[in-house]
Design a protein around this nucleic acid. Structure first.
Lengths: 232, 232
DNA sequence: TAGTGGTCTAGACCACGGG
DNA sequence: CCGTGGTCTAGACCACTAG
């Protein structure tokens, strides 16, 4: 673990321990340097991390302050971790597990038309379906996959099992009406609203390994994003 | 303008001029240092900016590469600039311009129940309505506002007219059905899908100055987000 | 005007990728 | 093994905030 990640964790713990809330001030950069015995840029990197995660904001000439905390039950749209860290363990029902080439819109997002694992899953929270997923994983990059893995967290498997680092993603979203087939899975009616997301994930070396179509149940899913214009 | 912003612009221009596309490699950090006559951390800051904007990605031990470019016609969900930079000039119809206190959900987002400018607007692109906005601006922070300003870009006015820097935002989103009244404005039918966004904006000093409810027309709006786990 | 964050540099050393 | 990006430091100076 990198030094600035450690320091970021420590600062986060400090915020929790001291019960700091919106607008409360952190110790100065100089104090933090002394406190954690690291250089200025290490502190700055740590604070940048916390800024990117929507936890603090910096005000030049004044200090570093705590941001309002996100509301419960909302999923992050931008985290590459997806909803994994926000929701209680979702359950997963694998509807189809097979191998095939990705069809047109997806293969373009993948920048490849090679053979893929195709996985169709319905994910539930407290027994309520919140998203229907159709995912394609490139076999040249994810060489092994099973129904059992698909019943858990595929991304955890890629990170911890395959030791690959997921680095960035492209998402294209729109709102539309559900088809009859989708509605059946999501326990809604044909024509009800949904959010459709085309989501492509890339490894640290820039190769796309997964592209998915996600259809969210409008009653069982809500989203948040905390953004910040900020650099070290 | 800061040095690293200038360098970021130059690198971006270089990418355009050399017509670099997905996967193409930029010069090495060392080369860029020589080329632009700046230190290493300035180059790193510039590249961090471009990374945050979804333009490039870094691969340790290998190089800096160009990311796939976003598709046309999609609005950024995370930019604090909103759709301003993505769409051709939207036209704006001011439906209501008044002064009042924000009602319950909004006043909590604003962290204040002071008197606000209330502005209800319908924004169109090519004559097609794509979003219905209800915005509250705190009068203590935005001391003057007019119907004429509301017909243009309010954020440009705050930035350039009032010289205030917009720094971060909180967004809470869900999909739902349109009410009859909303449908009338958006030229859709009651019960049609929509994206509802509660959006709160903060200045660089951390004070919330605007909180809005946005209702997007599902036929005339689509969104993208290019995220990246990255630090300098 | 003191204090705080922001920018920038030079340089040492580390960690990873790929031939 | 070499080249590349990544981390970290020490320190100089700038820019902004707030009393």
């Amino acid at each position: 673990m990198k030094k600035y990640e450690l320091v970021a964790d420590k600062i986060k713990n400090y915020i929790n321990k001291e019960q700091l809330h919106h607008g409360d001030k952190l110790p100065t950069i100089t104090d933090l340097m002394k406190k954690y015995q690291v250089g200025k840029s290490t502190i700055l990197q740590a604070i940048t991390l916390l800024t990117q995660r929507g936890i603090v904001y910096k005000v030049q000439g004044s200090g570093v302050f705590v941001r309002p905390t996100g509301q419960d039950g909302y999923m992050s749209l931008t985290d590459n971790a997806g909803f994994a860290h926000v929701l209680k363990k979702p359950t997963t029902e694998v509807i189809e597990f097979s191998e095939k080439k990705a069809p047109k819109p997806i293969s373009e997002h993948l920048h490849s038309d090679e053979e893929c694992y195709f996985i169709k899953r319905l994910r539930k929270q407290d027994g309520k379906p919140f998203v229907l997923e159709e995912s394609y994983y490139r076999k040249s990059i994810v060489p092994f996959m099973s129904k059992e893995i698909a019943e858990g967290s595929i991304f955890d498997y890629i990170r911890e099992g395959l030791k690959k680092e997921i680095r960035f993603s492209d998402k294209y979203m729109r709102v539309r009406k559900l088809t009859a087939d989708e509605a059946k899975y999501l326990e809604l009616k044909e024509g009800d609203p949904c959010l459709e997301v085309y989501d492509t994930f890339y490894l640290a070396n820039g190769t796309a390994f997964d592209s998915s179509k996600l259809v969210y149940n409008y009653k069982n899913s809500k989203f948040y994003d905390q953004s910040s214009d900020d650099i070290i």
